[in-house]
Simulated scan of single mutants.
Amino acid sequence: MLNKMLDAVEEAYRIVKAAGYPIMPPEDEDSLRRNRSKVYWMLKIAAATPVG
Rank of each mutant, 00 (worst) to 15 (best):
M1D: 14
M1I: 09
M1T: 11
M1K: 11
M1N: 12
K4Y: 03
M5T: 12
A8F: 05
V9D: 04
E10I: 07
E11S: 12
R14P: 00
R14Y: 06
I15P: 00
V16R: 15
K17I: 01
A19D: 10
A19N: 13
A19K: 14
G20C: 08
Y21Q: 10
Y21D: 08
Y21K: 12
I23K: 06
M24T: 11
M24L: 11
P26V: 06
E27H: 14
E27C: 05
E27Q: 13
D28H: 09
D30Y: 08
D30A: 14
S31Y: 11
L32A: 05
L32S: 05
L32G: 02
R33E: 09
R36C: 02
R36V: 02
S37K: 13
S37T: 10
S37L: 09
S37E: 15
K38N: 04
V39C: 00
Y40L: 14
Y40F: 15
W41G: 00
W41L: 09
W41N: 10
W41S: 06
W41F: 11
W41H: 08
M42W: 02
L43V: 02
L43D: 00
I45A: 10
I45F: 08
A47D: 04
A47E: 07
A48F: 00
T49C: 06
P50F: 02
P50V: 03
P50R: 06
V51A: 12
